[in-house]
Simulated scan of single mutants.
Amino acid sequence: MPVVGTLAEGTPIRMGVIGLGSMGRHHARVIREVEGMDLVAVADPYGDKHGVAKDLAVQPDVQALIAQGIDAAMVAVPTYLHEEVALALAEAGVHTMVEKPIAATAESGARVARAFEEAGLVGAVGYVERCNPALLEMRRRIADGELGEVYQITTSRQGPFPARIADVGVVKDLATHDIDLTSWIARSPYASVAGQVSHRSGREHEDMVVATGRLRNGIIVSHVVNWLSPLKVRETIATGEKGAFIANTLHGDLTFVANGDVRSEWDKVSVFRGVSEGDSIRYAIAQREPLRVEQENFRDALWGRASDVVSMAEGVHTLQVVEAVLESAATGQTSAL
């Protein structure tokens, strides 16, 4: 059902962007390209260092942005400001998408989600990996039964330290993507999680994490995430009774490796009661910019169409899992959700 307060379908959406840094500048570009969206206002107290405002005056804060008469906003400010900015937008009746994570803490995120729900506004979280073509195709094929029962989902997200990050560690910045997409692919929330973190670069926040867990539907999961690898890796693997899907989200590729049915005659191997490697298929997938798909989903939600936006409630659950990982790392105990 359409959300109360959505705009009439086809109505041009007056969009605002607050935060013109590494993510906000790309959102500003994409919004200008999406049919049905008009970028009419931008704001950043530190100015427009990337030159994305063009003919728009750069507003100093969220109240000045609201005063431009916007219908909806994209929030791309640092994480610690998410709650303050989002609550101001909710109070003003502005539909909003907040860059991930929804807020600095789950408690803070819950306040944001509640404010938008009570105001009857569209509230969404920007988890752009859900719009990656390889993951979209993986999720569709799993739902169609091509993997049979899913046993395990593993992710690897590794690479050099991003200069854009100052206020959170690798768990809230990067692992949050993997936690969200895993729950989304499996269509199940987390039941428990355990984590180990490391501080190797002298920064306040953790820069490496290994997390394992179990979803409520029984699927076991693991995540390897760090900022300290010279090799950039973005991989999600779903293993099930018929084989495995391997998504390379860096390139948007999806491969299926089927369980083999050719039996080995080598005695030492033939006694192993498992599977063998069968045929491998690399799917040709239409490549679309994930950030554009994300904004189109937001537009559709604003128009009251069926949409794949990430709800604020989902954003809160992901943050609860993130905090459980950090709690587990601090206590050495598995955290239940």
Rank of each mutant, 00 (worst) to 15 (best):
A166G: 15
V262R: 08
A329C: 02
L181W: 11
M23A: 10
T334E: 15
V310E: 00
D279W: 10
G240E: 12
G243Y: 11
S188H: 02
Q152G: 08
V170W: 08
G243L: 10
A86E: 01
D38T: 15
E35L: 11
K172S: 13
A175K: 02
W227F: 15
I185E: 00
H82M: 08
Y190P: 08
A166H: 14
I66N: 08
S328W: 04
Q333I: 06
L181D: 15
E204L: 03
M15V: 14
A143C: 11
E118P: 02
W266G: 11
A324N: 14
L65C: 07
L89D: 05
R29L: 13
L7R: 13
P78R: 05
R234N: 15
A211Q: 06
G243N: 12
T154V: 15
M1S: 14
L39H: 04
R130F: 04
L7S: 13
V34E: 07
A330F: 00
N217E: 09
I70L: 04
G315M: 00
I285D: 13
A301K: 02
V58I: 03
R14E: 09
V271T: 14
Q63V: 12
R263Y: 05
A284T: 15
E314K: 12
R288H: 15
L231W: 08
F116S: 06
A76V: 02
V58F: 01
A238K: 03
V271A: 10
H205F: 13
A134Q: 03
E241I: 02
A53Y: 01
D48H: 04
E129N: 11
L20Y: 05
A247W: 05
P290Q: 06
T249D: 14
S156E: 13
S276A: 07
